[in-house]
């Protein structure tokens, strides 16, 4: 039995900022680093974690059957073929939402924490019942947001709710960062977002077309050992979660030509 299981909720408030992609990639990356990892799809209404992991055709039972006690936990867990340290507990039928209670979520998570070092919970968007159920079962949280006003605003709302529920620590992952847009000051900078949300930054993920390619294939970037920008960011985040001291990437240091230097000069804060 794993005694120090880390139970981490991956949430954002707003939909479409990259929660599920981050969950899939961190799950694989942690598993590759040797940690026994379970990813739990808590988005019962609109499940997608199975698809991003390429496990959609291997689901037999789901969290629903486990809760109804019509199957054992290990029958429902879908082990990843290439990365056997990772297992997915799929979301059940959307009708589960009608009866699912915070206690059910706590029961599932406590069963998982008996067997795994990490339990990553892929939280549904929004701040309604699905979110509240998931929050009730977690100890710590990762907030995913994009450098956009709507995503940051929703993240702020969720941080407030996590604080009320006593979730701690809460860390930030800034996703889909475009260094060139930040340099020309047409995108909120990393500092802008961390200042506004007042959260420690666990990492940032650069905008990367390869993310779309990998979701098309159902093979998370961290699985294929890709060296694309987002893949490196995801692995760095996983290593930081494991306690390694990996320096944060500085988007403003990307590029070293005369033009980049000029752009950096124009960014100098006067007051």
């Amino acid at each position: 039995m794993a005694t120090n299981t880390r139970i981490i909720l991956i949430c954002s408030g707003k939909g479409g900022v990259g929660k599920t992609t981050l969950t899939a990639n961190l799950g694989i990356a942690l598993a590759r680093q040797g940690a026994k990892t379970a990813v739990l799809d808590a988005d019962f209404g609109l499940r997608n974690l199975d698809l991003l992991l390429g496990l959609e055709n291997r689901i037999v039972y789901t969290a629903q059957e486990v809760l109804e006690e019509s199957c054992r936990l290990d029958q429902a867990l879908v082990k990843h073929k290439q990365e056997p340290n990772l297992a997915l507990l799929p979301a059940g039928n959307p009708r589960m939402l009608d009866w699912l209670k915070p206690e059910d979520m706590q029961r599932i998570v406590s069963m998982l924490s008996d067997q795994f070092d990490y339990v990553l919970i892929d939280c549904p968007a929004g701040v309604e019942d699905g979110f509240k159920n998931a929050v009730s079962a977690t100890k710590e949280a990762i907030i995913v947001t994009n450098p956009e006003v709507s995503a940051v605003r929703d993240a702020d709302r969720v941080i407030g709710l996590l604080n009320t529920h006593g979730v701690n620590p809460v860390q930030l992952v800034l996703n889909r960062v475009r260094p060139k847009m930040i340099a020309s000051q047409e995108m909120l900078s990393v500092d802008d977002v961390t200042d506004i949300l007042a959260l420690p930054l666990l990492g940032l993920v650069l905008e990367d077309e390869q993310v779309i390619v990998s979701t098309n294939r159902g093979e998370p970037l961290t699985l294929t050992g890709s060296n694309s920008p987002a893949a490196r960011c995801y692995s760095n985040i996983a290593r930081r979660m494991q306690g390694e001291d990996i320096p944060l990437l500085d988007p403003s240091k990307e590029g070293s030509g005369m033009r980049d230097k000029f752009i950096r000069l124009m960014q100098t804060k006067i007051f």
Partner: peptide, 19 residues
């Protein structure tokens, strides 16, 4: 003004109200 500073100002205002 650059759109990032507009975004900053708008966010700070709306968050003060939200909070």
């Amino acid at each position: 003004k650059t759109s990032a500073s507009t975004a900053r100002e708008r966010l700070q205002l709306v968050l003060a109200h939200d909070r």
